[in-house]
Design a protein around this nucleic acid. Structure first.
Length: 637
DNA sequence: ATAGGGTTAG
């Protein structure tokens, strides 16, 4: 055991020792039982109401131990009304509570979610200790009232009260949001001064604070110097990576800690599954599911929800549904995860069917409607989607947020009702987002609406000139209309505004290894075979009618170079590799970090037809399941 | 007495 932990232990032992003489003296000269001595056994047996009756009968004869037992029972059972009765009884009997009992009252109010009463209690206390302050700070933290929690912490310091490890662990959870890291670092230095920085609870709180502030290296540093680790601190670092989208790192650190024999609980697995969802790592997901089963954990809705989500994001909806059907109880999140799964796979009718059974059991929330609306959009159920929006607003009386409007704009665009979508954007109570303009631009491309497409693209280029995807789509629109001069103009524009974007990346999991490809990537050990395979595919699908869409390349090069750049797209590398490596007839599963490009989508369709192979392609937006040359997205995405 | 990690959607 680390030295500092031993110090904590000694402190506790020391406190216990100081209690001992009093207990001994009680034993040597037994006094008659106090009048309120029957309250405690009643409370311990869960007979709180009988104990309250006893309290009322005793009047002013209730003592410390009676009140303590009553308050403990109220705290355990979150019994607010009963707790208020105890408090009122104290006042009526003119009983002056000690700091301890007053703090117990405060804690009772905190646990019963009555922060105002708790705050009044704290203000009225003539004397406070570190527990009183911490309990109140904890109340604010847990309700998400970060500013109040931090403000009270400062007040505590000003009052001359030093924080202990409980206070620090608590107040750090309120260091979120824009000023979180600033306050968090100050509290970190305070923890260093008071030698609590490597306390396990303070440490996990610290590392989580850094992770939520995107300072993952600082989080890792805190984790690495912790003298002891437990489930929570290990889970916190895994979760930290996963929250920032560093899914591979989350998996790596889990593998490491698992080898070292870390404990896992349902939170650990939830975080880990979350990372595997991001990686679309079905093999690992199955393994972790197996691990979950072998751990024989009790039933946790949260964990089952994570499994549903993992299977659906790894492309295995059948397993998602199996988990969903076998659940002992479901939360609204279980339904939402299942709905979103069907939606991302383009199964609109399944979304509608599931939603209809959902409303029989639980009240859908805002997320449910987002899933249903986007599910209808991806599944091509335009009118159904609009009906659901109507149902949400007029029937359920729910206020749509900006995301719901985004879904409806997407729906209208898909139906080719582009003017209508523009109208909605003008009259909705939010500023249009780039995602909305982007969705509309996509609609203009599919429905060949050049004039609105130009207008929308201009908007987008003003708002986010750094996103080259917008230039590409605008160029697609011009190319489709045969306006080659405008294609050239867009290319010039792009050159002027040195466009940087997140590099496109596709990956495929084969034999429990993740093979990642970037555009024109030559780093794979089998690169020669992969490029040879691409050329082979290219020749054969050209015979079947594939024509490369050169407008997908915006670099100012000649057509021959464009062709070779197009063939180097990461999706194509992954497809070629998938065809080389996997067993015939097996579904080829590919994942991409951005949206799939028009040409790659077309390429995949031809390959699937000519080679009679099914291809599942998950892009940042949805799944494209391509079977015999037809995609579930119906060429709209 | 008071404390740390948490699933859907975006």
């Amino acid at each position: 055991m680390h030295g500092r932990s031993r110090v904590f232990l000694l402190r506790r032992i020391h406190l216990k020792d100081s209690d001992r003489p009093r207990q001994l003296s009680c034993q040597t000269s037994p006094s008659p039982l106090p009048p309120d001595s029957n309250l405690k056994p009643l409370c311990l047996q869960g007979r709180l109401h009988e104990a309250l009756l006893g309290m009322a009968t005793l009047g002013a004869e209730v003592r410390f131990h009676g009140y303590d037992a009553l308050l403990t029972a109220c705290i355990d059972r979150r019994a607010f009304l009963e707790g208020q009765l105890v408090h009122a009884h104290m006042i009526k009997s003119q009983y002056l509570p000690s700091v301890y009992l007053a703090t117990r009252l405060l804690i009772m109010y905190v646990k019963c979610d009555s922060l105002n009463d708790a705050r009044h209690m704290l203000e009225a206390m003539p004397e406070r200790n570190v527990v009183s302050w911490t309990a109140m700070i904890s109340g604010y933290s847990q309700k998400g009232h970060c500013a109040e929690a931090l403000g009270l912490f400062v007040k505590m310091m000003e009052a001359g009260q030093l924080p202990d490890e409980y206070t620090l662990a608590t107040v750090l959870t309120s260091c979120t949001g824009p000023f979180g890291p600033k306050h968090g670092r100050q509290i970190h230095s305070l923890a260093l001064k008071t030698n609590f920085d490597s306390h396990m609870f303070v440490g996990s709180s610290l590392l989580d604070m850094y992770a939520k502030a995107s300072e993952i290296e600082d989080a890792r540093r805190v984790f690495d110097i912790l003298p002891d680790r437990d489930v929570v601190s290990c889970t916190a670092i895994i979760s930290g990576y996963a929250q920032l989208g560093l899914d591979a790192e989350a998996l790596e650190v889990f593998k490491l800690l698992h080898k070292e024999g870390m404990d896992c609980n349902y939170v650990t697995f939830s975080c880990l599954l979350n990372a595997l969802s991001g990686l679309a790592a079905l093999d690992y997901g199955r393994q972790v599911h197996g691990l979950v089963i072998r751990c024989e954990l009790p039933f946790y809705v949260v964990l089952q929800n994570s499994l549903i989500d993992m299977y659906s994001k790894c492309g295995s909806l059948i397993y998602s549904r199996k988990i969903f059907d076998n659940m002992l109880e479901r939360s609204v999140i279980s339904w939402n995860a299942m709905l979103a799964g069907y939606g991302k796979h383009g199964l609109g009718s399944e979304v509608v069917r599931l939603f209809k059974s959902m409303v029989q059991e639980v009240r859908p929330d805002g997320v449910s409607f987002k899933a249903v609306l986007s599910g209808c959009s991806h599944g091509g159920l335009v009118d159904e989607g609009l009906d659901f929006f109507d149902f949400m607003v007029n029937d359920q009386r729910m206020k749509p947020d900006i995301g719901h409007y985004g879904c409806v704009i997407d729906l209208l665009g898909r139906a080719g009702r582009i003017e209508k979508a523009l109208d909605l954007m003008k009259c909705m109570p939010f500023e249009p987002t780039t995602a909305m303009w982007g969705s509309l631009l996509g609609a203009c491309r599919v429905h060949a609406n050049v004039s609105i497409g130009e207008f929308v693209a201009q908007k987008l280029l003003d708002i986010e000139p750094e996103n080259s995807g917008n230039f590409v789509i605008l160029s697609n629109i011009y190319a489709a209309a045969g306006r080659w001069q405008d294609v050239a103009r867009v290319r010039e524009l792009m050159k002027e505004r040195t466009v940087t974007k997140e590099p496109g990346r596709s990956w495929i999991n084969l034999d429990k290894t993740m093979h990642t490809f970037y555009s024109s990537d030559r780093s794979h050990p089998q690169r020669e075979q992969i490029y040879a395979k691409i050329l082979e595919l290219y020749e054969r699908i050209k015979e079947a009618g594939y024509v490369p869409d050169l407008s997908c390349v915006l670099h100012d090069v000649d057509d021959e170079q464009k062709e070779s750049m197009l063939l180097g797209h990461s999706e194509k590398l992954a497809i070629a590799f998938g065809l080389m490596g996997s067993t015939p007839c097996k579904l080829i599963r590919i994942t991409k970090n951005l949206r799939i490009c028009v040409d790659c989508h077309n390429f995949a369709k031809y390959v699937s037809k000519v080679y009679a192979r099914d291809i599942s392609l998950r892009d940042s937006n949805r799944f494209h399941l391509i079977v015999r040359g037809t995609c579930t997205c119906r060429d709209y995405w």
